[in-house]
Amino acid sequence: MAEILDFKCPNCGGAVRFDSSSQRMKCPYCDASFDVDELKSYEEEKQSGGQDRMEWDTSSGPKWEDDETENMAVYSCNSCGGEIIGDKSMGAASCPYCGSPVVIAGQFSGDLRPDYIIPFKLDKDQAVASLKKHLTGKKLLPKIFKSQNHIEEVKGVYVPFWLFQCEADARMTYRATRLRHWSDSKYRYTETSVYRVIREGSINFERVPVDGSSKMPDDLMESVEPFDWKESAEFSPGYLAGYLADRYDVTAEKSRERANARVKTSTSDAFRETVSGYSSVTPEGGSVRLSEGKVRYALYPVWVLNTTWKGQKYLFAMNGQTGKFVGNLPVDRGAYWRWFTGLTAVIGAAAYGLVWLLH
């Protein structure tokens, strides 16, 4: 009996035919086409059932160093069992396999448990819209930055903050001046009187925030302040679901220096407002003594956006409660110099006009 050859489509298993118009083997079921020699090789390989030879050299490749794995941790998703790799300060994340929100409960237990949390009020879409608004009206921003910068990451993060509370007894000194002007038929006179002004008193501070995460730039976190404390709540892990969260990796003890600087600056500014009636007032120094100092631990909501333009990364942040948006932008140098030249010309013209009037 003659042997019957039957060529099957590698895609769907249907019998393929030679198509004269294309000079190729064509499947009438899935419309796939193949070169004749290609299909022949496929059939011969299928019939022969050739033996596989698949060997790998698994001994090559660098090994992890101890200092590289020291801060790494592996967690397991309860929904799909997938492994989530992060650092030891990670407190909440999303599973990269199934997208389920994951809260690392152990990160917020015992002495690591936050006292308070301010929940997110604004969502991801509002953060992206705020970035677009932030780029609007910036005359020195390169025009193509809007269209060519790419948002690489938008993440809602609960940032750990230490809240310092104290009473400050302070003594501040200021250098103040008063000016008196007069003139006669020949000269104009200016008399400058210099004073040393002293202010003493007490001032209470509540919840002075200091960023407790080394991952977040302190100046960026201070720029998105203030947060409305009236909307705070006692901490519950349920608030973390769907967001990222870190526990602190900068201790309260290490945060004291920054808290002290903020308290001293705020005290000097508050006392400065009581010095009036002078032509100029300059802070000279002073001393602050703290009492009844207490520290609390809280999580504040922040949207963090990363964009890239011309190989450089730009970091933006938005207060997840109030919507305050901050971040640095590139400057169009050509536009800057055109603006600077125009401003110089305006000032020069104004100065010339003033001199002409005086004469």
Score class of each variant (00 low, 15 high):
252 A>V: 05
176 A>M: 06
86 G>F: 03
230 K>R: 13
220 L>Q: 11
329 L>T: 10
337 W>S: 07
134 H>C: 02
211 D>T: 13
98 C>Y: 04
9 C>Q: 00
63 K>H: 11
271 F>K: 10
114 P>K: 06
280 S>L: 06
20 S>M: 10
199 R>A: 09
195 Y>A: 09
171 R>N: 12
260 N>A: 14
253 E>L: 08
279 S>R: 15
162 W>K: 05
40 K>T: 06
70 E>I: 03
45 E>W: 04
29 Y>P: 00
52 D>S: 15
132 K>R: 10
175 R>M: 07
354 L>K: 12
306 N>A: 14
314 Y>K: 13
310 K>L: 10
118 I>Q: 07
171 R>D: 07
27 C>A: 06
83 E>L: 09
288 V>I: 10
269 D>E: 12
120 F>Y: 03
218 D>P: 04
355 V>P: 09
294 K>M: 07
299 L>K: 02
39 L>W: 01
30 C>K: 01
246 D>Q: 12
10 P>T: 02
217 P>Q: 04
155 K>W: 09
177 T>Q: 12
188 R>N: 11
16 V>Q: 00
168 A>I: 02
293 G>M: 13
274 T>M: 11
264 K>T: 11
49 G>C: 04
49 G>W: 01
157 V>E: 10
57 D>C: 08
35 D>Y: 02
161 F>I: 05
272 R>H: 06
181 H>Y: 10
51 Q>N: 09
33 S>E: 02
166 C>P: 01
49 G>N: 10
169 D>A: 11
60 S>G: 08
350 A>L: 14
5 L>E: 11
87 D>A: 01
312 Q>F: 05
36 V>W: 00
3 E>K: 12
3 E>R: 14
214 S>L: 02
320 G>W: 00
89 S>R: 15
46 K>I: 03
291 S>Y: 09
1 M>W: 03
54 M>P: 03
241 A>T: 13
6 D>F: 00
328 N>H: 15
213 S>G: 03
155 K>V: 06
49 G>H: 05
236 S>K: 06
212 G>H: 01
291 S>P: 04
261 A>N: 15
319 N>W: 00
163 L>Q: 00
101 P>I: 02
124 K>D: 15
185 S>R: 12
274 T>V: 09
100 S>I: 01
144 I>E: 14
33 S>M: 06
325 F>R: 04
40 K>A: 14
31 D>C: 04
239 Y>G: 05
46 K>T: 07
55 E>R: 14
166 C>N: 08
199 R>L: 10
163 L>A: 06
9 C>W: 00
103 V>Y: 04
233 A>H: 11
13 G>H: 00
95 C>A: 04
181 H>E: 13
243 Y>T: 01
266 S>N: 15
13 G>K: 01
25 M>H: 07
310 K>R: 14
65 E>Y: 05
120 F>T: 05
299 L>V: 03
262 R>M: 09
248 Y>M: 02
339 W>E: 07
272 R>W: 06
302 V>C: 15
2 A>I: 05
348 G>F: 08
323 G>R: 08
110 G>P: 07
60 S>E: 13
178 R>N: 12
344 T>P: 00
192 T>E: 11
205 F>M: 01
103 V>G: 03
180 R>K: 10
98 C>A: 00
49 G>M: 08
241 A>E: 11
80 C>N: 03
303 W>E: 01
239 Y>D: 05
144 I>V: 11
